[in-house]
């Protein structure tokens, strides 16, 4: 009988090591007086949560959504709008700084948006799916842009962070640990889902839809369910993002943001537990490093991404592992 430690795969060890680093290093840097890196890490971890959720549908479900940032925007506006009304009046029904209320709104709105747009988008496949998810996300973008009361194109500064019991989001360390804890829970949840009966259907349907249908599964409903789960998680990430940056704007939902998330997943390694986290980390850190060197950082960054896609199939995790990531 193997002990759990002996049974851990190489990928398992890498995952544990990376998560340990993420849990310890940023707070340590903060403690040494370097707040900047904690803030950078907070953004990294929040984006990692969104990337992990995208990986559920993109990596495991084969749904190349180019509109995942829409959920981040919805979650963020679900946090920002109630606070705005609490301070400036109007819309009494939703005016609130209560975190639970805002989370409920973020999750509910994301779920509804995912359900409606997913139900339509999942009727299509391949390039059409990419285009239609992008179109829905752009709809959200233009909607937010047209909301003059909430700053329109310029966005809106949020006057006050969400109020929650036991946790003060104005404290950068507490904010970080909320994001980090969410990442751990999300990773665990996705890990459970993809290995469950539901996950088996989802994963096999990715490559062999006709086969799975022939066995008696309505694969459409399985995909739609996964799409809603991923949307809800990304919506929650959006609520965190609004709290973290105290600012919301339509650009959070832009198609380039969706593209960023997609890159993170592909860069890190699709259909792996750790891949999206590595991808988000690499994305945020390289972006930071390059943009401090040159304003044209997009160019070398783009070339790097092309390099990874061409030469490191299986992404960063695949490179670390020496082969395609685990199943």
């Amino acid at each position: 009988m193997k002990t759990p430690l002996q049974a851990m795969t190489k990928t398992g060890w890498i995952t544990a090591a990376v998560l340990l680093l993420l849990g310890v290093v940023p707070p340590l840097l903060m403690w040494m007086g370097n707040e900047f890196y904690l803030l950078l890490s907070t953004r990294l971890v929040i984006l990692a949560v969104a990337a992990v959720s995208l990986n559920l549908i993109l990596g495991y479900g084969g749904m190349a959504s180019f509109g995942h940032a829409a959920f981040i925007g919805i979650g963020a506006y679900a946090m920002g709008i109630p606070v705005y009304h609490e301070f400036y009046g109007g819309a009494e029904a939703i005016a609130s700084t209560n975190g639970w209320f805002q989370i409920g709104l973020a999750v509910g709105a994301s779920a509804l948006f995912a359900l409606i747009t997913g139900a339509i988008s999942l009727r299509t496949k391949g390039v059409y799916f990419i285009m239609i998810t992008m179109a829905f996300a752009q709809m959200v973008f233009y909607l937010f842009q047209s909301l003059d009361e909430y700053g329109g194109d310029d966005g809106l500064v949020i006057e006050m962070r969400s109020e929650l019991p036991w946790i003060n989001l104005d404290d950068p360390l507490q904010m970080y640990f909320l994001a980090f804890g969410t990442l751990l829970v999300t990773m665990l949840l996705v890990h459970l889902i993809v290995n469950s009966r539901f996950g088996m259907v989802l994963r096999v349907a990715k490559g062999n839809d006709e086969r799975v249908v022939t066995l008696g599964y309505n694969t459409y409903l399985y995909r739609l369910t996964a799409y809603v789960i991923a949307g809800v998680i990304a919506g929650f990430a959006g609520w965190m993002m609004a709290n973290f940056s105290s600012f919301i704007s339509p650009s959070m939902t832009g198609w380039t943001r969706s593209g960023d998330l997609m890159f993170m997943v592909i860069l890190g390694g699709t259909a792996t537990a750790l891949g999206p986290v590595l991808g988000a980390a690499a994305f945020v850190l390289i972006e930071e490093a390059l943009s401090s060197v040159t304003v044209y950082w997009n160019l070398p960054f783009g070339l790097m991404l092309i390099g990874v896609v061409l030469f490191a199939r299986g992404g960063l995790l695949g490179m670390l592992h020496g082969r395609r990531g685990d199943k």
Binding site: G199, M200, G216
Partner: peptide, 14 residues
Amino acid sequence: QARDGHSFRFIRAA
């Protein structure tokens, strides 16, 4: 699994 009730079961490892 296809004839063992529905498969909208998310937690236990298949």
